[in-house]
Amino acid sequence: MNRRDDLLERVTDHVLEQGLIGLTLRPVAAAIGTSDRMLIYHFGSRDALVSAVVDAATQRAIDEVDALPAAAGVRAGVNALWAAYRTEPLHRCLHVYCQAAATGLIGQEPYLSDARASNERWATALAGYLGRCGAPADVVGRIVTLVDSSLYGFHLDLATDRPEELARGVDDLARAAAGLAGA
């Protein structure tokens, strides 16, 4: 692993632990045992570092989805995906993306292009997982759109809503996704 990759891993670990909101170079550099000048040298700017961290967190989330075993059907798959969303490390990885979106980073450059690329990779991972759970190839894209947007909303609601209420809502979503799959 080269120095830049090592720094990115350590900054990503720090952000997953501490959050993305309010990230400044000097404190994060001190926390990981380097200097802000070293971060600038390897990443060019704070914006480039944040983009790289969001991308790294997305990759970690993709790796988690890729490692999920296939469930017995789309409904079970959506519910299993929700269970994974609520546990570490996927929960924190998704939280970083939500923080980036909440702070307006995702909707403007230089983050917009990076976010779109990450979203495409994320959708591909979800499609692969839901395909392994039995979603037909001709509708898996529609199912991914429904499930991805909905689960992000449920994920945000974890801060305020009761888990059992969210679980019922997720199961309703899972039934709808299974219906799209023809199950």
Score class of each variant (00 low, 15 high):
Gln18Met: 08
Leu23Met: 09
Gly44Pro: 13
Ala67Lys: 04
Ala72Ile: 00
Val139Glu: 15
Arg46Thr: 11
Arg26Leu: 15
Gly44Met: 14
Arg168Leu: 15
Ala174Val: 13
Arg37Ile: 06
Phe154Asn: 04
Leu166Lys: 09
Ala117Leu: 13
Asp6Trp: 08
Asp66Ile: 00
Cys98Met: 02
Pro89Ala: 07
Ala76Arg: 00
Glu9Asp: 12
Gly44Lys: 14
Gly107Val: 08
Leu94Asp: 04
Ala125Lys: 02
Ala83Cys: 05
Ala80His: 12
Asp157Met: 15
Asp148Val: 04
Thr124Met: 09
Ala183Tyr: 05
Ala100Arg: 07
Ile21Arg: 13
Gly22Glu: 14
Leu81Ile: 07
Gln18Asp: 09
Pro136Met: 13
Asp138Ala: 04
Tyr97Phe: 12
Gly131Glu: 13
Gly131Tyr: 13
Arg37Val: 07
Arg75Tyr: 04
His91Arg: 11
Val170Cys: 06
Ala80Pro: 13
Leu156Cys: 05
Arg92Gly: 03
Ala67Glu: 05
Val78Ala: 10
Phe154Cys: 04
Met38Tyr: 01
Leu105Thr: 11
Gly141Pro: 05
Arg4Glu: 09
Gly134Glu: 09
Pro89Lys: 02
Ala56Leu: 05
Arg175Asp: 13
Asn79Leu: 09
Thr58Leu: 05
Tyr152Cys: 05
Ala72Gln: 03
Asp66Phe: 00
Ala125Phe: 02
Ala101Trp: 05
Val140Tyr: 11
Val74Ile: 12
Arg3Glu: 08
Asp47His: 15
Arg75Leu: 03
Arg132Met: 01
Leu16Tyr: 10
Leu90Lys: 06
Glu9Ala: 07
Arg4Phe: 08
Glu164Asn: 06
Gln108Arg: 15
Asp5Ser: 06
Ile62Met: 06
Asn79Asp: 14
Thr12Cys: 00
Ser149Gln: 13
Asp148Ser: 14
Ile143Cys: 07
Val11Gly: 02
Leu130Val: 12
Arg121Thr: 01
Pro163Asp: 12
Glu9His: 07
Tyr152Val: 08
Val15Glu: 07
Leu126Ser: 10
Val74Pro: 04
Ala30Asp: 12
Arg60Pro: 03
Gly141Gln: 12
Trp122Asn: 08
Ile106Asp: 04
Arg60Leu: 10
Ala127Tyr: 11
Pro69Val: 03
Ala117Tyr: 12
Leu156Tyr: 03
Ala80Trp: 10
Thr12Arg: 01
Glu165Ala: 10
Met1Pro: 03
Ile21Met: 14
Ala125Val: 02
Glu9Trp: 07
Asp148Met: 08
